[in-house]
Structure formats: C-alpha cells, structure tokens
C-alpha cells in the first residue's frame, strides 16, 4: 500500500504521472465525477486549517466520493487522551483513505506504519507538506510549461516553512534549477537542506537577505508567511514578521514573465495591490491544489478512469 508522507516518497515519474492526471482532470472534469463513488475520505485535522482541509474535501466530492472527519484535536478522542495510532487504526475501519494534519512532526509517518488504509500527510508541524508541494509543482508546470531550467527565489520564513522544505526537496530532482534563498539570518533554511540537498547534489544556490538585490534574476518567486505559531517567543515574531513584503515597487525590478507563488494564507507579505497583476499566480495555485489532490486520491486508491 502506498502512502504520501514526504514529497520524495514519490519518484519523479510518479510525480509526473500525478501532474499529468491532474491536467487531464482539469481538461475533462465530467469524466472523473463518479470515479470515487462509494469511497470515503477521512480528514483528520489535529490542527486548524482552512485551505488544505477544504481542498481535500472538495477534491473527494468532485470525484463523487464522501467525506468524514474532524477539524481540530478538541473535537476528536485525542481530547480524551487517545493516541494517534489508535485514532488512525479506528478511522481506517470507516474510511478508504486518510488525510492527516498534525502539529507534531512525524505523526503521519508513524500513522502510515500502523494504518490499514493509505495516509496522506496534510502537514506535520514545521516538517513536511507534500500535497502543497504537488500543488506548487502543478502550478509551476502550468505557468511555465516545464519543471526544469529556471531560477526560483524562496522568500520569508525558510527555517520553519514546511512548504519550502518540501518544495526544495522535490525540485532538487529536476535539472537546471537555481535557488535563491531570501530570508533574515534568523529564518535561514536548516543546515540539513544545505548539506544533504544542495551540496550533496551539486545544486546551484545562494543565500541573500534582501529581495531587491535578486528580483531581476528570478523566473519564479515563492513567498511565505512568517508564521506566529512556529515561534517560541512572541518578541521574535513581531520583530521579523514584516521584513519581506512584495509590492508594486519591488515588482518593477522583476522580469515580465515572473510567476509569483504563495501557499496562502498570506498576512501582509504580498501587497493586495498586486493581486491583479498577471504575474500573481497564488489564487490559481489554490485552485490547482484541489485538482492535484483529486489526482493524488485516485492514484493512492488505485482508481483508474
């Protein structure tokens, strides 16, 4: 049985197949409207989420399937002290596939070791968020027409931002990608990303602290939110949260075909004044999230249409 815990669980071929399937779904939605009839997706969200949970639920509904689950740990048996392993074994009796978000890193990994049904990691603390990565890859593929030979800037919270870690790991397997890491020193990418992804694979990267010095080089900029819940200390959060804001002035320095991505939700790191700029892809990206999750559910359930 296949699970999706880390974006690198999938081979490049498997990722390409999922993205191709997502594009086929986009082109012919009716064909897939009953593909998961009588199947159930359980969304176990031990931590609040709007976009990810709703996009999973919308994805299953558009496949003709049903959805059950909970949206916070308070409304599950976790509040009574049940272990995550027991919750997963129990829910596996009721659902065909589980999407799980958990504040603790590795909870979906452990769940996959005890589960009778496929587990999808819908975000585990600051660690991994592979379905966001698939969303990002589909967005890049649709916006750029390729997944290789470009320069991508990753901006903001690169230390705790799980979407950034997952995306770097996934993209590292494609050729000719240059990485520009834009963050304050306090929020630089963890050392293991540098040593085990960039240096080990001889990948071209650089770390900078301002957006202005690199805007003109980028084909893609991936903006991230500085997340309050990832800080142990509120004073550090307040000091750093407004450091990197993409606005009209900074966009003047950018290429005409820049693609601006953001996993959302944004706070103020992207000015709303650029939302109508054709280079702003983040709402198209949110829509891609639903389609790629449809493709993933079909793949993990082994459903072919």
């Amino acid at each position: 049985m296949k699970h999706l815990i880390d974006s690198t669980d999938l081979t490049v071929e498997e990722i390409d197949d999922i993205l191709d399937l997502a594009i086929d779904i986009i082109n012919d939605k009716d064909k897939y409207s009953e593909a998961c009839k009588r199947k159930k997706l359980a969304t176990l969200f031990f931590e609040p989420s709007t976009r990810t949970r709703l996009s999973f639920e919308a994805a299953m509904m558009e496949l003709g399937g049903n959805v059950l689950g909970f949206s916070s740990a308070d409304s599950s048996s976790t509040a009574k002290g049940e272990s995550v392993g027991d919750t997963v074994r129990t829910v596996g009796c009721y659902a065909d596939i589980i999407a799980m978000r958990h504040p603790k890193e590795g909870a979906p990994m452990f769940s996959s070791m005890v589960s009778e049904v496929p587990i999808i990691n819908a975000g585990d603390g600051g660690h991994n968020h592979p379905t966001q990565t698939l969303t990002d890859l589909l967005t890049i593929k649709r916006e750029k027409g390729r997944l290789n030979n470009f320069t991508i800037g990753l901006c903001g919270d690169l230390k705790f931002g799980r979407t950034v870690h997952s995306l770097i790991k996934a993209l590292s397997r494609y050729e000719g990608i240059k990485y520009v890491l834009i963050s304050p020193n306090e929020l630089k990418v963890p050392d293991y990303i540098i040593t085990e992804v960039f240096e080990k694979n001889n990948i071209d990267y650089k770390e900078v602290t301002t957006m202005e010095e690199v805007m003109g080089e980028l084909d893609i900029i991936y903006m991230t939110r500085v997340q309050k819940e990832r800080f142990f200390n509120e004073a550090d959060y307040v000091r750093l949260k407004d450091t990197y804001i993409l606005d009209k002035d900074k966009l003047k320095l950018a290429k005409d075909d820049l693609s601006i991505l953001h996993p959302l939700p944004r706070v103020n790191e992207i000015s709303t004044t650029i939302d109508d700029d054709p280079r702003a892809c983040y709402f198209r990206q949110a829509l891609n999230g639903k389609y790629v999750r449809m493709a993933l559910i079909l793949t993990l359930l082994g459903v072919t249409v």
Binding site: S83, V84, G85, K104, E105, G106, M109, F110, G125, H127
Partner: peptide, 11 residues
C-alpha cells in the same frame, strides 16, 4: 520537542 515521539509514549 516538536517530534511526535515527544508526546506519544508507545512509539
């Protein structure tokens, strides 16, 4: 402290 093993005793 963020690892699942920090809160679940039997893992």
């Amino acid at each position: 402290p963020r690892c699942i093993t920090s809160v679940e005793q039997d893992i």
